[in-house]
């Protein structure tokens, strides 16, 4: 578990770089705002990213509890599912973590044991991406469901108002 210790030590740097890479998916001025506004109510996107990414890193290092992962990943994906991203762009930040980690521990990676451990660790990042995929689809389905329900309710009310439906008493 050498890798786990190294990642724990470098966690704050890695999470910061990971955050920066997500911020870069937005326009320059927006990225600045996401990074600098610390109040989570004034900056809910940045807030859910900073809380979420750190917690996800903890899960990757310590164990993969799906419920915990979903609780932190859901708010991030839920936001990106309605923003101007394609599905790939909305979730690509997860794979970005591989690059961030490899850059952050480039020296240590020369050791074969750590390099081997990293390959296993990266499988966990892939699992994270799959969970993100589930959440993304769930969010999109919810959007369509909301649209369908709004339309259904409107049509039903119109029929009801026109006395065109007869309900079971």
């Amino acid at each position: 578990m050498k890798l786990g210790n190294i990642l724990s030590q470098k966690k704050s740097t890695i999470v910061k770089k990971w955050f920066d890479s997500v911020a870069k998916t937005y326009a320059e001025d927006t990225a600045k705002f996401l990074k600098n506004q610390a109040d989570p109510f004034a900056n809910p996107v940045g807030g859910s990213l900073s809380t979420g990414l750190e917690a996800l890193m903890d899960e990757l290092i310590q164990g993969m509890h799906r419920e915990t992962i979903v609780s932190f990943l859901d708010p991030i994906i839920r936001i990106r599912a309605v923003q101007a991203f394609t599905p790939s762009k909305a979730t690509a930040f997860i794979f970005k973590l591989k690059q961030v980690i490899r850059q952050s521990i480039a020296g240590e990676l020369k050791e074969k044991e750590i390099a081997d451990e990293l390959l296993t660790f990266e499988i966990k990042i892939d699992e994270l991406a799959l969970i993100a995929f589930d959440i993304y689809v769930e969010c999109r389905e919810k959007i369509y469901e909301l649209q369908a329900n709004e339309m259904k309710n409107r049509t039903y009310s119109a029929f009801k108002r026109a006395n065109l439906v007869s309900e079971i008493e």
């Binding site: 870069k24 998916t25 937005y26 790939s88 762009k89 930040f93 689809v137 999109r140």
Partner: peptide, 22 residues
């Protein structure tokens, strides 16, 4: 948005999600 799905070659070309700096 899922209704803007890209074809595989477009996907690879577009995977870097940085927006244009203009």
């Amino acid at each position: 948005m899922s209704d803007e799905l890209l074809k595989p070659d477009e996907l690879i070309a577009n995977i870097e999600p940085a927006p244009p700096r203009k």
